[in-house]
């Protein structure tokens, strides 16, 4: 076995107090720890120690953490990443609060990805014995868990090859220029049974387009939209549906301008999932299926 899921997203925020209000009160994440200029959160349905790390100072992505199922996967990925030509270093237990030994890989796109196997177990809010379907007192959106991240990269085909060869991810959907010109300008990849655990679109290296929280239903997405209005959260697009992934969505911005998404739905993927292709002339429909319009922000706002 190999990579199981996106385990954590570590982002920079310009003002920690404002960010805490957003991720705590608006998104309803649970603060589990803080350490210096960092705060650690988890969703109510996540059992590992944390899934979101906020670090004060600047904006944008610090790193993504992916959790593997066996400690031997670390050796395997280290060999493959080195062979691929990526920069790989070992990270030690304690480099990240509560996270064990692992790998820190710098992608060809300059993004940092950490691979780990151990992290402290905290349990979900509903427990493991005769659990209720959701915790009785949720705040704001009440996001149960994180889902995926979308990053921008100068060479999507190269980063796609990295995730395929080194991480054993599969492509669920791909955007190419045209049938005549199969240059990849976007790729959505999965390791678990969802439409995507990582995605990238062509753009500057090292940047974050968004990271997403999974919600249970379309009505939860609408409920999240109501909360965004109550808390005056700037909404980028939505509620609407994506053509790519078929998911239902709202894009919005955290108080530092990092784009977040609430996401639900989408199909199931299996190791034999046949990849779907979109051509660039249909990109707007692929991204926002209902309006079939891309706003300028979608491609220009990155952190």
């Amino acid at each position: 076995m190999s990579v199981m899921r996106l385990g954590y997203v570590h982002v920079r925020v310009t003002d920690l107090e404002e960010a805490k209000s957003h991720y705590g009160n608006t998104m309803g994440l649970l603060e589990v720890a803080n350490e210096g200029n960092k705060v650690f959160y988890k969703g109510w349905d996540e059992y590992d120690h944390h899934s979101v790390v906020l670090e004060e100072g600047g904006v944008g992505l610090v790193k993504l953490g992916y959790k593997v199922s066996e400690s031997s996967d670390l050796d395997d990925i280290e060999i493959k990443a080195t062979r691929f030509g990526a920069t790989v270093e070992r990270m030690a237990k304690g480099d990240n609060l509560s996270v064990g030994d692992g790998l820190r890989i710098t992608l060809p796109s300059d993004h940092v990805v950490e691979i780990y196997h151990e992290i402290e177990y905290l349990g979900t809010e509903t427990g493991r014995i005769n659990p209720d379907p959701w915790p009785r007192f949720r705040r704001g959106v009440g996001a149960p868990r994180i889902d995926h991240a979308l990053i921008t990269v100068e060479e999507p085909a190269l980063v796609e090859r990295f995730f395929a060869d080194v991480m054993s991810f599969m492509v669920s959907e791909r955007v190419i220029v045209s049938n005549e010109n199969p240059e990849v300008i976007g790729s959505w990849m999965y390791c678990a049974g969802t439409p995507h655990d990582i995605a990238f679109i062509k753009g500057p290296n090292g940047k974050l387009h968004h990271f997403a929280f999974a919600l249970e239903s379309w009505s939860d997405v609408l409920h999240a939209g109501d909360i965004f209005a109550m808390d005056d959260v700037p909404v980028d697009v939505g509620p609407t549906r994506h053509g790519i992934t078929r998911g239902q969505t709202i894009y919005y911005f955290d108080p530092s301008g990092n784009r977040n998404e609430v996401f639900t739905g989408g199909y199931l993927t299996f190791p034999d999932f046949p990849s779907i292709t979109w051509t660039a002339d249909q990109l707007a429909k692929g991204i926002f299926y209902i309006s079939r319009e891309l706003n300028e922000r979608f491609t220009s706002v990155l952190t």
Partner: peptide, 12 residues
């Protein structure tokens, strides 16, 4: 006019 995140993060 052209704006992005309206939260000081994107510079648009």
């Amino acid at each position: 006019y052209r704006w992005g995140c309206r939260r000081g993060g994107c510079g648009v």
